[in-house]
Design a protein around this nucleic acid. Structure first.
Length: 865
RNA sequence: GCGGAAGUGGUGAAAUGGCAAACACACCAGCCUUAGGAGCUGGCGCCCAAAAGGCUUGCGGGUUCAAGUCCCGCCUUCCGCACCA
């Protein structure tokens, strides 16, 4: 007795370890076939993790989603590519090295081994034969190869620039890695601005295309597309030259007297989106770092002091992350600029709110038609001149600033009376004709600074020769290997600079002594193209084969956290376009469909070590099993929403799986006994045919109906909206019905072949969500071969249909009762049934039915007076 | 300020414009028992002792025979961008 009970008890641990072993013994199981495969291809990809040593719940969720999809697609007969790898370069390895005195490589590889064990324990269906580890020379040599290709194409350059410097990381950060003025890795560390020689990728060469192609990415979340659109920040406008005034007509002893001759033709180029307001420009504002400011303040120490102050304010605000919050300050230079259209002279100011790195670093200030200019002019008593009138003269109260483009020009000479848009066009044409301006599109997107002064990254394959300048490392000398033995410190520049064997090289051009570049590449370089490497991971003569890329790309489905919506996904798109232009691939976008899953939350906050609300996947797996842990992460919320982690919920899913186990094992005898006569050559891919013999009992029909409905629901969700939470709920409902019919399942009231069909399909439906249990039940039920490659069950619409349906009856829109009618009843029959209902009769007694709306199969509404 | 998403029971949530709260969790009552982190039965939005009935999807309007769902305005929360000229 006790033994029997023990048998019926669901215990995930032995089941899961049994299957884990079997799967490990069959490494080909998850391998994709080559481009000559007759099956349609499906490339499902989840973002590769950083090998910190520990998977967290966000990972579990991410990979549970992708794994469910991959398994489903296998069952649907696709040639599935489902790879995994490691984003293995990066600073934490160096920090760990400092802390534990472990070499970064060792630390990283150990972490990878640990996380791989976790992946396998969770039952993730990854093809490890294509594993990519970005910190290994096999991989990073191709980063260097790409770098050289891009250098040849003029897509790599070097320049001195203000860079974001994280004192904690002791390295430079890309703009994309600065969040609210702080380092993306160190939320409390303010980023400083420093001047350094840096390597850049010319991503701005693709700004227009990166923006335009977003429109084509209709398989991407709108949110991600919008974020990228804002990030690229296209702005259409006009550049116009104001001229520094030649004659300075002021008294003797003023600054003007010292004016040098070459000031005469100095141009101050401004960028504006509203050139139509230019007749209202009453000052020109320069960024503190603008070259003309340096020139004007050279002979004016008082001005120089003021400018330094403004610059300081700006810098502080930038480092504080809230540039918008600083108080607007400015200082007049005492000099004037000439408006090229009107010849008017306007004062030149320096403003702390004008940014050198956006537009031209100079603006024309039109107080009447711009909020900021208005505020500034009011503060400093600069004239405010209205030059745009609303189209419909809102009488009297002309409240300024009037910023709408819906207006007509006034006080604008020959342009008076034109609409804003007409005027913009004519003014641009006029400027171009006279050579003092042009139409211009500018972007917020900046070139991608890829230099890092760190050790644990891809060495940049360049050589500095005192004679030949910058010399690329010849291709046959790749890879430039990272030296293994190295002392890691966080100060004093790149650690590589202190390794003489690394630094000192022979110049490939002149053969003389030269120095190797000691910067390494941003790790986002690694992750910009890793998914191309998966398809040809062992290729030693090229990053990947073109034929394979043409077969596998674009990726059918990419899944990852929304935190990568800008950085990683923009870089990846850029890299794909760049490779296309190198002739390596034909696709212009890497990813067909992109999915951003929500965060995992606990107690109202994102799980994080600092908040102390981390739940360890290992813990959950140990307590409830991998199936329960994965399945809960899919059941608790739709995948795109944030998920509130509640351990009670995991226990609930675990109890559900226990019920499934009990149900299936309790009736497996019926299945196995009935097997001999049920398999008339059709294998166990059971169709609905056996149920339509006409001899089946009502309960059997009912259960089969539920089964077909459940199959239909889940299939539809996989194809479309991915609400796996309701898929699992549907399976629960199905199991609840089966369980309620427990007695009939064993009594023969439900025929053995039907029981077999119901239980086998239950295992198949569970396969994407709870792979261990599904495999075990499949085997116990005598299922053929691997469940992973068994065809997904098909729903028979005829059998899924209800015989009788309930129709809600409303009177004047208010629910009154529900009537039962045969399925497929027409409007007339439904109306009759509704009117015949006693409750309805009571309600309409003495009143007139004005109108009857019948939506067959849906509802009836009686409009009554 | 601009852009995006969301707001439904005690909780996570569900609902092609057609019975709001499916499926779970928690809780309550009962049963069972060699007691388990078990199992089974029932209850569980709010008002009302119960029934009958009424009310209920952030707030206010609108469209519609019918609105959680569509439209307009507002409030709140979260996310992204932000003196971007």
């Amino acid at each position: 007795m006790a033994e029997e009970k023990e048998l019926l008890r669901y215990n995930p641990a032995p089941i899961e370890s049994k299957w884990q072993e079997r799967w490990a013994a069959d490494p080909k199981m998850y391998a994709a076939e080559g481009p000559d495969c007759v099956k349609p291809k499906y490339y499902v990809l989840e973002m590769l993790p950083y090998p910190s040593g520990q998977l967290h719940m966000g990972h579990v969720r991410n990979y549970a989603i992708g794994d469910a999809l991959a398994r489903y697609m296998w069952m649907r007969g696709y040639n599935v590519m489902h790879p995994m790898g490691w984003d293995a370069f990066g600073l934490p390895a160096e920090n760990a090295a400092l802390k534990n005195n472990t070499p970064p490589r060792e630390w990283t590889l150990a972490n990878i081994a640990a996380m791989k064990r976790q992946f396998n324990r969770l039952g993730m269906a990854f093809d490890w034969s294509t594993e990519v580890t970005t910190c290994l020379p096999d991989y990073y040599r191709w980063n260097q190869w790409f770098f050289l290709r891009m250098y040849e194409k003029g897509l790599v350059y070097r320049k001195k620039s203000k860079v974001n410097w994280c004192p904690e990381c002791a390295t430079v950060l890309a703009n994309e890695q600065v969040i609210d003025g702080c380092c993306w890795r160190h939320e409390d560390t303010k980023v400083e601005l420093r001047d350094l020689e840096q390597w850049f990728f010319r991503i701005t060469a693709y700004a227009e295309e990166l923006l335009d192609d977003l429109a084509k990415l209709d398989g991407w979340p709108e949110k991600v597309r919008t974020m990228q659109r804002n990030w690229i920040g296209r702005s259409k406008g006009t550049e116009i030259d104001f001229f520094l005034e030649e004659k300075v007509d002021q008294g003797p002893g003023t600054e003007g007297a010292t004016l040098a001759q070459d000031d005469k033709r100095v141009r101050i180029r401004v960028f504006t989106t509203r050139v139509d307001t230019i007749f209202g420009a009453t000052s020109v504002q320069l960024a503190p770092e603008h070259p003309v400011v340096a020139r004007l303040s050279a002979s004016n120490p008082a001005l120089r002091v003021k400018v330094t102050e403004l610059l300081e304010e700006q810098k502080k605000a930038r480092e504080g992350g809230d540039v918008g919050a600083i108080e607007k300050h400015g200082v007049p230079t005492g000099r004037f600029a000439i408006n090229p259209y009107s010849g008017e002279r306007v004062p030149i100011w320096v403003g702390n709110y004008v940014l050198m790195d956006y537009g031209t670093g100079a603006i024309m200030s039109v107080p009447a038609h711009d909020e900021r200019d208005f505020e500034f002019a009011t503060k400093y008593g600069i004239p405010i001149r209205q030059v745009i009138k609303p189209v419909q003269e809102a009488e009297g109260s002309e409240s300024l600033p009037f910023v709408s483009e819906d207006g007509v020009l006034v006080n604008s000479g020959e342009y008076d009376g034109l609409t804003c848009l007409q005027a913009q066009k004519l003014l641009q044409e006029s400027a171009a004709r006279q050579g003092f301006g042009e139409a211009k599109v500018i972007f917020r997107l900046k070139d991608w600074g890829v230099s890092r002064q760190r050790y644990w990254g891809t060495p940049i394959p360049m050589i500095h020769c005192p004679k030949d300048g910058l010399v690329p490392v010849p291709e046959d000398q790749l890879p430039v290997l990272l030296p293994e033995k190295i002392e890691i410190t966080q100060t004093g520049g790149s650690p590589l600079g202190r390794v003489p064997e690394f630094v000192n090289v022979i110049c490939p051009k002149c053969g003389g002594p030269a120095r190797r570049e000691t910067d390494t590449m941003d790790t986002f370089v690694d992750s910009s193209w890793y998914f191309y490497r998966y398809i040809d991971a062992k290729n030693s003569s090229a990053p990947f084969s073109r034929v394979r890329a043409e077969y596998w790309f674009p990726i059918d489905q990419y899944i990852g956290g929304v935190e990568h919506a800008i950085l990683h996904l923009i870089y990846s798109r850029f890299w794909t376009k760049m490779m296309r232009d190198l002739g390596m691939i034909t696709n212009g976008e890497p990813v067909e469909r992109q999915f951003s899953q929500g965060m995992v939350i606990k107690d109202g906050a994102k799980m994080s070590k600092s908040k102390g609300n981390v739940v360890s996947p290992d813990d959950m797996v140990a307590r409830y099993g991998a199936d329960s842990t994965r399945m809960y992460s899919l059941f608790a919320a739709p995948p795109d929403r944030d998920l509130d982690w509640q351990e009670d919920g995991v226990a609930g899913v675990s109890r559900f799986l226990a019920r499934v186990w009990k149900l299936s094992t309790a009736h497996e005898g019926v299945v196995l006994k009935g097997h001999d006569f049920s398999r008339a050559g059709s294998g166990d891919s059971i169709s609905g045919a056996l149920a339509s013999e006409g001899s089946s009992s009502p309960i059997e029909k009912k259960l089969l109906r539920k089964m077909h409905q459940t199959i239909a629901k889940i299939t539809k969700d996989f194809e479309g909206r991915w609400h796996f939470n309701t898929c699992i709920a549907a399976i629960m409902e199905y199991v609840n019905e089966l369980q309620a019919a427990d007695a009939q399942l064993s009594s023969g009231e439900v025929a053995a072949p039907a029981v077999e069909q119901m239980l086998k399909n239950l295992a198949l439906l569970l396969a994407p969500f709870a792979p261990y249990l599904a495999a075990e039940l499949w085997e116990q039920l005598g299922g053929d071969g691997s469940i992973l490659r068994h065809p997904w069950p098909e729903s028979d619409p005829g059998l899924a249909k209800e015989d009788e349906i309930e129709i809600p009856v409303q009177i004047n829109g208010k629910l009154t009762t529900v009537v039962k009618v045969p399925a497929g009843s027409d409007a007339k029959a439904i109306e009759a049934a509704a009117l015949a209902d006693p409750k309805v009769q009571l309600r309409i007694a003495g009143k007139t039915v004005v109108k009857v709306i019948v939506v067959p199969g849906r509802a009836v509404n009686l409009v009554v007076k």
